[in-house]
Amino acid sequence: MATTRLAEYIGRVLGGRYRLVAPIGTGASAHVYLADDVKLRRRVAVKILHPALADDEGFLRRFRAEARAAAGLNHANVMAVYDWGEEADGPFLVCEFLGGGSLRSILDRGTRLTPSQALLVGLEAARALDYASRRGLVHRDIKPANLLFDDEGRLRIADFGLARALAEAAWTEPSGTLLGTARYASPEQVRGARLDGRADVYSLAIVLYEAVTGRVPFVADTTMGTLMGRLEQPIPVAPELGILGPIVARAGRPDADERLDAVALGSALQSAAGDLPPPGRLPLAGIAALDDTQGRLDADPTELGLPVPPSTTQTSATGAPTVIDMSPPEHGAATPFGHGAATPFGHGAG
């Protein structure tokens, strides 16, 4: 996708109804655009996958099946998938637009979450993972870039189904890759074993550890060293985590049979909430437009073996962030985000 200039897509209409407005994210396998749904008159996010995938029948079959499954998910903490389609330039997904940005964007600014804030993030994510697991879905790529927020700070998990579809794609990056982000992959993913929802819990435990401490455990100088370091060791108990430390360690045990599942993780977090102060409002990063020379790359690329790209920030000629208009189109249609304030401990959909 590096050969495709982001600006070339602006103004195009996909599927006869999704007019691309501005690029808002890019990674190894896809570009993401803010778009207008001209039929329903609302803002949406459109993820355009790599053009090489358009001719991959194995991927397209899995992509169609996973897109349908993801579209059937209806949970307060799962990003809604509205539509999907295929164009000459590659398949695309249409999702709800979330203006609060990602956890990755928060962390890339040097901000760390308090234990109370991390607990709320973990609780909402655990509820979403439990919901998906009960429906037979394993995410396989839980990482800060896939934890998004609406304008009020409510968490949504993005990209359910996409990691599994990419696993069956013949296309890889030139260097050759394995699926699953190295820094957040579970031991069973490293071993190539059968996965269930506990693999996602492990990845979430890594995310919570990083969100509070600013460090990712087991990171080594090489991808292989990063992967091998977690096969026998539990996630360490960091003092910064406080009361969350033992919970994160239990969610990060290398043996899935000894690990908390999503239900148990949610229960443990809920029990710990009474011993923590209420969470402050999350320091949301928001969304900024990208150009062709400075993009907000996914610092946790889905494919293993890729170098972690530098984090860059889009700026205007004056040095100020280039912020796109997040308001709905002038016709005044309701935006797909804004489902109420972030839930305090003990409230929200289960």
Rank of each mutant, 00 (worst) to 15 (best):
G27E: 02
F92R: 12
V308E: 15
P329L: 06
I324D: 10
A317C: 00
E152F: 07
R281A: 15
V323G: 01
A193Y: 10
P23T: 01
L195A: 08
T114W: 04
L113G: 06
A167K: 07
G197M: 08
A341V: 14
L162V: 09
A28S: 15
F218M: 07
P187L: 07
H75I: 06
L98I: 06
V38E: 15
R154W: 01
A205V: 07
P246K: 07
D275T: 13
R230K: 15
A199V: 07
G274V: 09
R109I: 10
G295N: 00
G122C: 08
V237F: 00
L306N: 06
V121C: 06
E173L: 13
R43M: 04
V78W: 03
Y184L: 01
R127P: 00
V13P: 04
A238C: 07
G286F: 05
R156G: 10
E188G: 05
G58Q: 09
A80P: 01
G11V: 13
A65I: 12
T177W: 03
G214Y: 14
D55T: 15
T312I: 09
D292N: 15
P283G: 07
F218D: 08
R64K: 14
Q294G: 00
F59K: 06
D257N: 15
L155V: 09
A272Y: 04
A341K: 14
G242T: 10
P278C: 06
A342H: 03
F218R: 02
G197L: 05
L276G: 02
R259M: 01
D292R: 10
T343G: 00
A268Y: 09
P23D: 02
L148M: 12
G332R: 09
L269Q: 08
F218C: 08
H31T: 11
A251D: 12
Y18W: 07
L60H: 11
G242P: 01
S102R: 07
E168Y: 14
R134T: 09
V121A: 06
F160S: 06
Y202R: 02
R61H: 12
D83M: 06
E87R: 06
G225C: 05
P23S: 06
A158P: 04
V216A: 09
A52G: 12
G85L: 05
A145L: 05
A126T: 13
D275Q: 14
D108I: 00
E96R: 00
Q270M: 13
R43C: 03
I247A: 12
G338H: 04
G338W: 05
A165S: 12
T322D: 14
L265C: 05
A317Q: 13
P51T: 13
L148V: 08
I287Q: 04
A28E: 15
T181K: 01
P301F: 11
G100E: 01
L93V: 05
G229N: 15
G136N: 11
M224T: 15
G348W: 02
G27P: 02
G340T: 08
T111K: 13
L231V: 04
S175G: 14
A205N: 07
G16I: 03
G332D: 11
D141Y: 05
G101L: 03
A70T: 14
A199P: 04
